[in-house]
Simulated assay, not measured.
Amino acid sequence: MPDAQPQPTAARAPFGRRLAAAMADRGPLCAGIDPHPSLLAQWGLDDDVAGLRRFSLTALEALAPVAAAVKPQVALFERHGSAGLAVLEELLAAARGLDVLSIADAKRGDIGSTMAAYADAWLGEGSPLAADSVTLSPYLGYESLRPAIDLAQRTGRGVFVLGLTSNPEGASVQHVGAQASVAKRIIEAAGTDNAGDDVVPGPSAPALGSVGLVIGATVGEALEELGIDLAATRAPVLAPGFGAQGATAEDMRRTFGGAWEQVLATSSRGILAAGPDAAGLRAAAEKARDELA
């Protein structure tokens, strides 16, 4: 029989603890790195790999000192094929070098060995695509994500599970069941995983687990209507929709209520539209961060 392969061991503090510290130090802003064709054109760049690389690395260098995390949108790299994924690998390595947490917005979800392969790609030690965390889709069942959740725990990385999104189509699945909704069951499952975590608050940071949730910043009163208690989950909450997509900091404080300290607000286009000048990008990010504070 072949020798058993050694299991990865965490060479870093748990992701939730690292994210809480980053939020306490830099504020609760996640800066999206979304190389949309329209933004490349606005920056005077061609919609090709060279333009993609310049856009991404310029944005990262400008935003890393301001944001608790950066979130590259994986699809916008994939559309350039293998060369685009090579740029993403370079971006993730550069983020590590700049000591800013990375969230690969890949929304992966599958079953069995396929899910394990996705986990290895985005969370495995030695993978060129490994980020500090990755977004996951639970709509083949929350437990189908177990290979990624377990690998993240072993390597000190994290996951963000789609919980309650603000796209109009989402309600047709996520809200089904009302007070026993699909979304509520997913969110409570994440809380159960975090209850088993070694969750330790810092002197000025919330106690966060490493299984995060994606909750749209513009879900409005849906959390209350579905009876969802985010604070009980101890989950970091990635909240896309802040800024250009319509949610203000005041809106988000109303939406998230007692879970506000867990919220990592994402702004992409609202910040990136200030490029390509690095000073303009940083000023836009600082403005967004200060609004959240």
Results as ranks from 00 to 15, higher is better:
Ala59Ser: 11
Val199Cys: 10
Thr266Gln: 06
Asp198Ser: 14
Leu45Ala: 00
Gly275Cys: 15
Glu225Ile: 07
Pro240Ala: 07
Ser204Cys: 06
Val159Tyr: 02
Ala239Gly: 10
Gly81Asn: 07
Thr9Ala: 04
Ala131Cys: 02
Val176His: 09
Ala217Pro: 15
Gly196Ile: 10
Val100Cys: 09
Arg53Asn: 09
Val219Tyr: 01
Gly163Tyr: 00
Leu223Gly: 05
Glu89Arg: 08
Lys71Thr: 08
Ala94Glu: 12
Val100Tyr: 10
Gln42Lys: 02
Ala24Pro: 05
Glu250Ser: 15
Thr266Asp: 02
Asp198Met: 11
Ala152Trp: 06
Ala75Ser: 14
Gly246Cys: 13
Ala116Trp: 13
Ser172Cys: 11
Leu40Ala: 04
Gln245Thr: 15
Ala189Phe: 00
Leu101Trp: 13
Ser127His: 15
Val214Met: 14
Arg54Thr: 12
Asp25Thr: 10
Ala64Asn: 05
Ser133Val: 04
Leu213Ser: 14
Arg157Phe: 12
Pro128Met: 10
Ala69Glu: 09
Phe160Leu: 11
Ala94Lys: 12
Leu226Phe: 09
Asp120Gln: 14
Gly124Met: 13
Ala131Trp: 01
Thr255Val: 06
Pro128Ser: 11
Leu45Pro: 00
Leu39Ala: 00
Ala119Ser: 08
Ala279Lys: 15
Pro28Gln: 15
Arg53Met: 10
Gly275Pro: 11
Ala273Arg: 14
Leu281Glu: 03
Ile149Arg: 01
Glu125Ala: 14
Ala189Thr: 03
Ala130Met: 13
Ile187Ala: 10
Trp43Asp: 02
Ala278His: 12
Ala75Glu: 15
Ala293Val: 02
Asp47Phe: 14
Ser113Glu: 13
Ala31Asp: 03
Leu164Thr: 06
Ala69Arg: 04
Phe15Gln: 01
Ala117Met: 11
Asp198Leu: 11
Leu272Val: 08
Arg269Asn: 03
Glu221Ala: 15
Gln42His: 09
Arg96Ser: 15
Ala195Lys: 13
Lys287Cys: 03
Val182His: 10
Leu208Gly: 13
Ala244Val: 12
Val49Lys: 06
Ala4Asn: 02
Glu78Leu: 06
Ala190Leu: 02
Gly97His: 03
Leu92Trp: 05
Tyr142Asn: 02
Arg18Met: 05
Ala62Asn: 01
Ala21Gly: 06
Ala41Arg: 08
Ala274Met: 11
Pro236Cys: 07
Tyr118Trp: 08
Gln5His: 01
Phe15Val: 02
Ser102His: 00
Glu261Lys: 12
Leu272Gly: 03
Glu188Gly: 09
Leu162Glu: 04
Leu92Pro: 03
Lys287Asp: 07
Pro35Asp: 11
